[in-house]
């Protein structure tokens, strides 16, 4: 039989383990942020080198960028609500909120792919000039993160359906939500520097 002292000891141990995992993931996020910072620096330096081709202000659609921002922002909100549901232990709410997040993320990705396809169709590829090289690298790297986040989310949700909300899965969901909020913050800077910055 477990005494209350043993139980609280066990809880403290579990909490410390969670803290370590959280911090480890946080270190990964910060190094990822540094990588994005370097891509931003490259874009800032090279965005004017269009070799006579159109510049950002000539081709970017502000409506599209706004729509993408709203989708990602809303998904960052729904993933937060999903985490609250997870801590309450409500499996159906977790599936609903994370499912909604997944759909919003997918819609964001679809819009981004549409934009890329239009640029490429108009003859603007990564090889066109330094502006497009740095643009596709920066925005594409973010899109790749969104893609892997969606894969991760899909797999985790399948586990939630199969196994219910156990402790390791709750930890995974917490990391996933952290990752998703992080991607939203990176996008805020893409929206600001790449899209709105083009009209300065």
């Amino acid at each position: 039989m477990e005494t209350s002292i043993e139980k609280s000891h066990h809880e403290a141990h579990e909490a410390a383990a969670n803290d370590r995992v959280m911090f480890g993931f946080w270190v990964y996020l910060m190094t990822d942020l540094l990588m994005f910072a370097i891509l931003f620096a490259v874009y800032t330096v090279l965005h004017g080198n269009t070799m006579g081709g159109p510049a950002g202000r000539d081709i970017f659609s502000m409506q599209l960028a706004l729509l993408e921002t709203l989708l990602l922002l809303t998904s960052s909100f729904t993933v937060g609500l999903g985490m609250i549901a997870a801590r309450r232990g409500s499996k159906s709410h977790v599936l609903a909120w994370f499912g909604l997040t997944f759909v919003l993320g997918l819609a964001f990705l679809a819009l981004e792919m549409k934009e890329f396809a239009e640029f490429i169709h108009e003859g603007h590829t990564m090889q066109s000039n330094a502006f497009f090289s740095s643009f596709f690298t920066l925005v594409g790297t973010h899109g790749l993160h969104i893609t892997s986040g969606l894969l991760w989310m899909g797999v985790t949700l399948i586990y939630v359906i199969k196994r219910g909300l156990n402790a390791p899965l709750l930890r995974k969901l917490a990391l996933l939500s952290l990752f998703w909020h992080f991607l939203d913050i990176v996008w805020i800077f893409i929206f600001t520097i790449v899209y709105m910055g083009a009209f300065v």
């Binding site: 995992v21 909100f77 609250i84 801590r87 709750l170």
Partner: peptide, 25 residues
């Protein structure tokens, strides 16, 4: 649930998410 609820960084209430969302918009 408590061992998880107490784990890692403090988490927000629904209110904090709503405030954050509205301000972000």
């Amino acid at each position: 649930m408590s061992e998880i609820a107490h784990g890692s960084s403090e988490h927000g209430s629904a209110k904090s998410y709503v405030i954050g969302f509205v301000l972000s918009l």
